[in-house]
Amino acid sequence: MSTVVHEFTDKVPRWSPYVTPVVLGKATPEQLDAMQVTPSNKKISDYVLTLAHDPESLKVRSPLFNAIMYGKSGLSSAERELGATAASVVNRCVYCAAVHASRFNALTKRADVIEEIFAKGLDAELEEHQQAIFDFAAKLSKTPSEANADDIARLADLGLSKVEILDLILSAAIFGWANRLMHTLGEPVRD
């Protein structure tokens, strides 16, 4: 018997879909291609099997997500994860927040930043640099965006280059996408 996880956590739960995932053995060649199924890669998550219902978008989304979150140069990996976490807090995607908060913790080798964010949400009080990143990503995640010229100026004043700021925009925005899939098409559970 599994229970639904409602509170933010850095211990990654299992994602349980509300729609029936594609059955791997019955997938079309286009779905297999979009899921990047190869003889050496046959372990496909329920999330990817669910998105395989729309192979045209999945095929593009996966490389786009990877380029934004794991691209070389530009904003540090930890700061991209912080942007992703901020969006996931706004959109209350507990699963996404768990994955990306735990990556932030692993990259920075500290737990206090995420503890503060999970305890206080958008009112979290952080060190200046992280605060500016977190606040900008959170404001950009509202509908419509509440980010303004002062927020960008604050990032620039702290020394972020334009490419780094663009990487932050992209990492928050791609979680405006990912959260709207993971939080609406399924739920985090513990078995």
Partner: peptide, 8 residues
């Protein structure tokens, strides 16, 4: 996603 990239 697109609206946020453009806004940023």
């Amino acid at each position: 996603y697109q609206a946020r990239v453009i806004a940023g």
